[in-house]
Structures are given as structure tokens and as C-alpha cells.
Amino acid sequence: MGAVTVSGLKINYRAAGSGDPLVLLHGGFGFDSRSWGPQFDALDDEFNVVAWDAPGCGRSDDPPESFCMGDYADSLAEFVRVLGLNRPHVLGLSFGGALALALYERHPSLPRSLILAGAYAGWAGSLPADEVQRRVQLISEEVTQPPDDWLPKYLPGMLTESAPREMAEQTLALMSGIHPRASLTMLRAMANADLRGILPNIDVPTLVLHGELDARSPLAVGKALHTKISASQLVVLPGVGHLSNVEAADAFNFEVRTFLRSLRGPVGP
């Protein structure tokens, strides 16, 4: 574990392995770098795997309430540069997928490739307006309450019913570390983000990796991303929900490794 100062905030991170840099961007709802355990266990033999706690998550400082998706992206770009990561592959799940797109929009020369898992082009860019409003209202009302009172009902949106009980319990325990005020900031950023405009301009290799049974970001969202990103390929993990990196870790890691190996070659300046 390590920490650096980015945009005036202390940012906690985890790093392991050597090789081409692979930056992992977690989702919202209390997730942080710990949610990438299965990827560290499997991929650090071949890649320099780096996962941050986004501002307001895990052990990182909370950002100002005015933080928008662009601010998260600028902080991420500074984080990558502070660590000296040269054109990393960027893998984002859920909120992290939207953040990866925002990073490309604002810093297009930074990522060597994108992996979008259970991703959105922001909620405003991928969901109907009434669904965005429903989510914002519901989460805004609940997030400041004791986590045990409301977090359990979100588990079905994260994992399928076939997920092992231990996996569900571990996921809930991780989510319970949520920063309430910072989560409202992240919620607003995600709800207002509409990144559809950048999709046709993406010219780095892109893997859209989506769970077939994803209830939070339905498969249609992933298919829309793939359709609009000409440099992309789509892989659907059968029988898997939103947290595909956990629920189908072996298949997820195989697809990530296969994709990244296919890109081996000289890295530009």
C-alpha cells in the first residue's frame, strides 16, 4: 500500500508486479482498491498492477463537494504521472468505466488501451432520464443512513443469485466502508456525466467486458458502448452480474490477459 498527494488530496493506492502498467478503477458504493483482489492475485505476474482509492473512497481524502467527473479524471491523470506510469492500460468497472472514458476525453494521449467493464458513458449518457432521477433520489435518501439499514438491498444489483454466500458477505463488508458525503459527490458526478460524444473519437484498442446478467448496467448499455467505439471488441461473460471481476474472476482475468497480450508492441513516447 502507498499514498501520494494529488490535487491537494491524499490518495491511497495498491501496486504489485512488474511489466506493462495496468491501472484499475473501481466502482462507487463504497468500493475501493480492495475490490480488485482477484485481479492482483492473477495478473501481477505479468503486469504492473496499480489500483487507487478514488477521492472519497477507501483511505483517500474526500474531495470538495463540487467535484465533477472531469475533476476525477484530472486527478487520475495526475496520479498516473506522479507514479511515473508510461501510457498505462486502463481498466474501469462501473463508475470506474465512466472515469476511464472521462480520462480519455480530457487526456487522450495518456491511456494505451481501455477496458470497460460493466461500464456507462455516465448515467446521463447511458440511462433514461427517469431512471437516473430514480437512482439519485433513492441513493441520496439512503446514503446518510446506517449502512446496515440499506446496503443489503443493493447486493442483488451487484451479484447474481447464484453467487456464493461468502462472496456476497465479503462484498457487503467492503461496501459498508462507504464515505456518505463523498458518495453523494460521486453520485452527482456520475448522474450528470454524458460521455457519449467522445465514444466515436476513441482510437485506442478498447475491450468492452460485460456481464450477461448485469442488473446495474444492463447488457444493452455495454452493447451501445461497443457500437459507438469503432476500435472496440465486445466480450459478454455468461451468467454474470455487475461485479464480473469478482463473480467470474477466472473468466474476467482470462479475457483481460488475452486482450492485453494481443497489444504487445512498442510503446510510444
Rank of each mutant, 00 (worst) to 15 (best):
V204L: 14
R196H: 05
G177V: 09
K153D: 08
G177H: 09
P152K: 02
V204Q: 10
I139V: 12
R134A: 13
P180L: 02
L209N: 11
G125C: 12
A129V: 14
T206W: 07
Y154T: 04
R181D: 10
Q145R: 14
T206P: 11
G211P: 14
G125P: 09
H210S: 13
A189P: 00
P147I: 07
L138P: 02
L151T: 08
V143C: 03
A173E: 07
V132K: 11
P180A: 00
M167D: 01
P128S: 12
P205T: 10
T206Q: 04
T160W: 08
D130Y: 14
P128D: 05
T160H: 06
A189T: 00
A124D: 13
L159A: 02
L151V: 04
L127M: 15
A168M: 12
Y154L: 04
P156K: 02
R181N: 08
P156G: 04
P205G: 13
P180K: 01
I178H: 03
P147V: 12
P156S: 04
G197I: 03
R196F: 04
T206M: 06
K153P: 06
Q170E: 13
A193M: 02
L174V: 02
M158D: 12
L172D: 04
Y154W: 13
E166T: 06
M158C: 14
D148W: 07
D130G: 10
E131T: 12
T144F: 15
L207W: 08
I202K: 12
P164A: 03
E212C: 10
E161R: 10
H210C: 06
E166V: 01
G211Y: 14
V132R: 10
V143L: 11
P147R: 09
E131N: 14
S176C: 12
R165L: 03
Q137L: 15
L138F: 09
R165P: 00
S176H: 08
A182D: 00
